[in-house]
Simulated assay, not measured.
Amino acid sequence: MEEEELQQIQANVSLAIDQLGPLSDVEFGLNPESVEWVEGFIERQRARPGFDPERIDGLVGVLGSFLGACIAAATGGRWRKSDDDTWGVLLPDGSTAFPFTKVRKQFRGGVEDGESIAGFYRVAVGFIATGKLREACGGGAGPDAT
């Protein structure tokens, strides 16, 4: 079952690149510029008339897969299913980033409520995965990012 779910995540990543790449104005792929563009895409979707944040499961699946793949590519992380059956990206420091949760939060609250997938990406890649956040907090167990 997990193998099928991982295949679906990869299919979602391919779908995001194939469908969103031609719409973007960046070299679209598993990179920070694409994450920034997707953040704007989410905000544009939120601004559409009739947008319903409760009817976004498909978009959350595709964009969460893409965000997780970007984080994994930048950190050397890998997909892992948590004890509560939630998929996340296991980072080199042992913590887990949960991209689907973050995408859903941005769809619901938007960047005006501090829900930025680009900020999430930067923190996961630049601070959590490298251990810099742990060092700044005085050591201890790695946080789980959401």
Results as ranks from 00 to 15, higher is better:
Val13Trp: 09
Glu54Leu: 12
Glu39Lys: 07
Val60Trp: 04
Ser95Val: 00
Thr86Lys: 14
Val35Gly: 01
Gln45Cys: 14
Glu33Met: 05
Asp52Met: 10
Glu39Thr: 06
Leu59Glu: 11
Val60Ile: 10
Gln19Lys: 13
Ile17Asp: 01
Ala72Ser: 11
Ile17Gln: 03
Ser95His: 09
Leu67Cys: 09
Gly94Arg: 13
Gln10Lys: 13
Gln19Leu: 08
Leu6Lys: 14
Ala73Leu: 05
Asp57Phe: 12
Val13Tyr: 05
Ser95Trp: 03
Ala16Ile: 02
Leu20Phe: 15
Gly88Cys: 10
Ser82His: 03
Val38Arg: 00
Val62Arg: 03
Pro32Ser: 13
Leu30His: 01
Arg46Val: 10
Pro49Val: 12
Glu43Asn: 09
Ala16Leu: 02
Gln45Ala: 11
Thr86Phe: 12
Asp84Lys: 07
Ile9Glu: 04
Leu30Trp: 02
Leu90Asn: 00
Ser82Lys: 10
Glu33Ile: 01
Arg48Trp: 04
Ile71Asp: 09
Gly76Ser: 13
Gly58Leu: 08
Thr75Trp: 02
Lys81Asn: 00
Ala74Phe: 08
Gly77Cys: 07
Cys70Ala: 15
Leu59Ala: 11
Ala74Ser: 13
Arg55Ile: 04
Ala73Gln: 13
Gly21Ser: 09
Asp84Gln: 07
Asp93Trp: 05
Val38Thr: 06
Asp25Pro: 10
Val60Arg: 02
Glu36Pro: 09
Ala11Glu: 06
Pro92Ala: 02
Val38Leu: 06
Asn31Thr: 14
Asp83Ala: 14
Gln45Lys: 15
Ile56Pro: 03
Arg55Ser: 12
Cys70Tyr: 03
Arg44His: 10
Val89Trp: 03
Ala72Gln: 07
Ser24Ala: 15
Val62Gln: 01
Gly58Pro: 00
Val89Phe: 07
Trp37His: 07
Lys81Phe: 06
Glu36Ser: 14
Ala74Arg: 13
Val62Ser: 02
Pro49Cys: 08
Ala11Thr: 11
Ser24Phe: 01
Lys81Ala: 04
Gly58Trp: 06
Gln8Gly: 08
Val26Gln: 09
Gly61Glu: 07
Ala74Pro: 09
Trp87Pro: 09
Gly64Gln: 01
Gly64Arg: 01
Asp93Ile: 10
Ser82Pro: 01
Leu91Glu: 01
Leu67Ile: 11
Val89Pro: 01
Glu39Leu: 07
Asp83Ile: 12
Pro53Ala: 13
Ile42Lys: 01
Ser95Met: 00
Arg55Tyr: 05
Leu20Tyr: 14
Ala16Val: 08
Ala16Lys: 05
Ser24Trp: 03
Glu33Gly: 06
Trp37Lys: 03
Ala74Ile: 13
Pro22Gln: 05
Ala47His: 09
Ile17Leu: 08
Ile56Ser: 00
Thr75Cys: 06
Leu59Ile: 12
Leu59Gln: 11
Ile71Trp: 04
Asp83Met: 11
Leu67Phe: 12
Phe66Val: 02
Gly21Arg: 10
Gly76Glu: 11
Glu33Asn: 02
